[in-house]
Simulated scan of single mutants.
Amino acid sequence: MSTADQILEVAKRTIRIEANAVKELENVVDSAFAKAVLHIHQSQGRVIVTGIGKSAIIAQKIVATMNSTGTPAIFMHAADAIHGDLGIVQKNDVVVCISKSGNTPEIKVLVPLIKNFSNKLIAITSNRDSFLGTEADYVLLAPIQEEACPNGLAPTTSTTVQLVIGDALAVSLLELKGFTDQDFARYHPGGALGKKLYLRVRDLSDQRSKPEVALQTSMREVIVNISENMLGMTVVVEDKKVKGIITDGDLRRMLTSGKDIDSLVAQDIMSKNPKTIPTDWMAIQARELMEEKHISQLIAVDEQDNYAGVVHIHDVIREGIV
């Protein structure tokens, strides 16, 4: 067997072991999970997620997922907690403690302190009979048959399972809260993801110049208008209403037709019924419409169907909405 074949075999074995462990979780999730979710949902405090080693890293990811889906959460490192950071925990907070063995020294010190504060404790552990498992109010079992690491030492399968349980917690709470895409947008204002959820057509059209000519504007003025605005087009407007569009292509066809440029005005060469889009539509809908119609710009119109500006495909790409 070649080295490449050996690498692929190891990779496939790792995926298979972890996938089987995740699949087994479906048979393990029980009433304790439902009770834990309901307790978090009904609590007046935050979710404090703690762990040590690789479990601490998983805890940080779970905190990030909860915060982004409407459940206030804070990460607390188990080792730091017993050296002062325990002050993070407030009266109504729920503590989620992650530990594969449930018997690490730091966990054994931390758990009684949390219990003394009368905070509810949720355990995510592979060992129900561990110190953590027996002391917790709710045990979310994360059983594994083996780590993907051939030595059985490096946390691999165990951390994958912990992560999946954390996602299940976050999504269950999301469903209970009736968390919508608009709520999601409030917590993700930056980056392409947030922009897909909140950026509207008006946000793009307001950033650009607003090329505009009248029905009787001369061809020479039309050419100047298109050149100045650098969009390769201009909009023909009458009484604030869109009557047509003139593009570089329309100008080229006019020039090659042999017609006298001085005898023509905007309405003579404009394309009627151009594609428009309401300013309150989402920017991602503008992108989808441009792709569907195979065009590079749309004319934005307001609530009264008045001309409001232009959205170009470059605006969409610049904002990362692809």
Rank of each mutant, 00 (worst) to 15 (best):
D183H: 04
P189F: 02
N116Y: 02
D5R: 12
Q42A: 14
G178A: 00
A192T: 09
N127K: 10
I114Y: 00
V139S: 04
T104S: 02
V164D: 10
E291G: 13
K108T: 10
E221A: 14
W281V: 15
K108L: 02
G166Y: 04
K108R: 06
P105M: 00
E135D: 09
L163V: 06
I284W: 07
R208F: 10
V95L: 00
N116I: 03
A36C: 00
L199C: 07
G191T: 07
N225S: 03
C149H: 07
E106A: 05
E106M: 05
D167W: 10
S31T: 11
V235G: 11
I246W: 05
G53N: 04
K240M: 14
S99E: 03
R202M: 14
K35V: 14
L113N: 00
L132K: 00
G249K: 04
L255H: 06
I223L: 12
A266Y: 07
I57T: 11
R202T: 13
I17K: 10
T180N: 10
C97S: 08
A123K: 00
A34K: 13
M66F: 00
Y307H: 06
S101R: 01
N151P: 12
K115V: 04
T234F: 04
C149Y: 11
G87D: 00
V10S: 14
V171H: 09
T279D: 03
N306P: 15
L8N: 10
I299A: 05
V63P: 08
I62V: 08
I57K: 13
D129M: 08
G309R: 03
F184E: 10
L251Q: 04
C149P: 12
K210Y: 08
H294Y: 11
V49A: 05
L132W: 01
T157R: 02
V222C: 01
V242G: 11
I62R: 04
R16W: 13
V311T: 09
L169W: 08
F117E: 00
V235M: 03
I299T: 10
D280C: 12
I82F: 01
D167R: 13
I226H: 01
G84V: 06
R252W: 04
L132I: 00
K23C: 13
R128K: 15
P211T: 01
I277H: 06
H294V: 15
V213K: 02
I88A: 11
T160R: 06
E9C: 15
D85H: 02
K243A: 14
V265F: 10
V235N: 05
K243F: 15
E303D: 14
R287T: 07
L197W: 04
G102R: 04
Y187D: 13
L264P: 07
D239P: 15
Q216P: 15
I245V: 14
K108W: 01
D129E: 15
V201D: 04
K12D: 09
L264N: 02
N27V: 10
G133C: 05
Q162W: 11
L140F: 06
L193G: 09
K115E: 01
R200S: 12
I88P: 12
K240P: 12
A73I: 01
K120C: 07
V139Y: 03
S227D: 13
Q297V: 13
V94R: 01
E18L: 09
I62N: 04
A19R: 14
T14V: 07
V94D: 00
R46D: 05
A185D: 09
Q6D: 11
